[in-house]
């Protein structure tokens, strides 16, 4: 498997997280996203006409879009079947709902971060304000999940690709000037996610301490 990868990209980080959590070997093809804009080069546009990262090559398959890649990896390689619960229509619907929500986080909190760190020109105040609106929704959702003894975004005892997909641009939000101080339930969920076996960080993502005992994940 080959991942077209950029170290500072939250969308590439989603895929790296899933690959390492599933224990999969892969080759990273590093792309000069900034300042080289290699993702807009002719060669790259032939791979992905949208000119976006990440891209996964697996055999003959060339797949773009982080959410699509997460779906593929989970269904194809997750022997437990828990990361993308194909046999549970209700949970699957919720996974799809939160995958779409994660795209919203990318286009708001992620955009503010591009503005602040890679000098993208965009309306950063609007991006931040919309990110806060989304975080309020996610925090309330996670607070009630905890109140019902649930640890993850979708109901059930195990995390899904919805957690992986929402995590990167949440945990990197402060790089775009979006504080998570007002979202304590999101901050606790981030700690739990960092404790998953196989978790890896990236620049700007710090580790969490292990839970005190094996069964106390929160």
């Amino acid at each position: 498997m080959k991942l077209y990868d950029y170290e500072l990209s939250g969308n590439c980080y989603k895929v790296r997280l899933m690959l390492t959590i599933l224990g999969l070997e892969y080759e990273a093809r590093l792309v000069d996203f900034y300042p080289g804009r290699e993702h807009k080069s002719d060669a790259f546009i032939r791979l992905n006409p949208l000119g976006q990262l990440p891209i996964l090559e697996d055999g003959n398959l060339i797949l773009r879009d982080a959410q699509a890649i997460l779906t593929y990896l989970a269904v194809r390689y997750d022997k437990s079947g828990s990361w993308y619960p194909v046999s549970e229509p209700q949970r699957l619907g919720e996974v799809a709902q939160w995958l779409a929500f994660s795209q919203e986080i990318t286009s708001t909190a992620g955009a503010a971060r591009l503005h602040d760190t890679l000098f993208y020109k965009l309306d950063v105040e609007t991006a931040r304000s919309r990110a806060h609106t989304l975080f309020r929704i996610l925090d309330e959702h996670l607070w009630f999940a905890e109140a019902g003894n649930q640890n993850w975004i979708c109901p059930g005892n195990t995390p899904t690709i919805a957690d992986i997909s929402c995590f990167p641009y949440v945990i990197l939000s402060e790089e775009g000037g979006v504080s998570r101080q007002d979202y304590p339930a999101i901050r606790r969920w981030c700690d739990r996610l960092k404790r998953l076996p196989g978790f890896v960080g990236m620049p700007g993502v710090f580790p969490a301490t292990p839970a005190p005992t094996g069964n106390q994940s929160r």
């Binding site: 101080q181 700690d191 301490t209």
Partner: peptide, 16 residues
């Protein structure tokens, strides 16, 4: 400044 439930073990809460 926080709820008791904001403070699970091995977590740091950010308050003001």
């Amino acid at each position: 400044i926080a709820s008791s439930s904001d403070l699970p073990l091995r977590h740091v809460f950010h308050g003001q």
